[in-house]
């Protein structure tokens, strides 16, 4: 099944520049419906008000980290199967394993290229 390029995507990062970069790269890939949240708490509030098809989140945020957001998303029946991609500078083995155990669908190390983002989204969403 073809990927719906109009799917609502929530990107979460506390750095405004990173939000702009990810939004820009997603637009370049053809996605058009992109919302932003500035930390895990903000993201949870947005998840309650709208159904998203994909979350792309940073890890290192305050007051709620991307890892905590992932745990909460997986613990909620309405979002437990929502595709979740972590985009982070946290590149220790224990981080990757913890995120995997918590149910992350893919994990991208910053800094990253548009090609890497596209390849990882393909593994999560299918070919587009």
């Amino acid at each position: 099944m073809a990927v719906d390029m109009k799917m609502p995507i929530l990107i979460v990062d506390d750095y405004k520049t990173m939000l702009r970069i990810v939004r820009n790269l997603l637009s370049k890939l053809g996605f058009s419906d992109i919302d932003e949240a500035t930390d895990g708490t903000d993201a949870l509030a947005k998840l309650k008000s709208r159904r998203y098809a994909l979350i792309i989140s940073d890890w290192n945020m305050q007051p709620m980290t991307g890892y905590e957001l992932l745990q909460k998303v997986r613990a909620d029946a309405s979002t437990k199967s929502l595709p979740f991609v972590m985009v982070t500078a946290e590149s220790k083995v224990e981080n990757v394993i913890a995120a995997r155990k918590a149910g992350v669908n893919n994990y991208i190390i910053k800094p990253f290229s548009a090609e890497v983002l596209k390849a990882k989204l393909k593994t999560v969403l299918g070919d587009f």
């Binding site: 946290e90 590149s91 220790k92 083995v93 224990e94 981080n95 394993i97 913890a98 190390i109």
Partner: peptide, 25 residues
């Protein structure tokens, strides 16, 4: 807990190594 921040050059995992862990899991 679990927050390390960016790895210093030469001490963090590369994307390929992360992919291997995810694929293996």
């Amino acid at each position: 807990t679990l927050l390390n921040g960016p790895a210093l050059p030469g001490s963090g995992m590369e994307q390929d190594a992360v992919d291997e862990i995810l694929a293996d899991d």
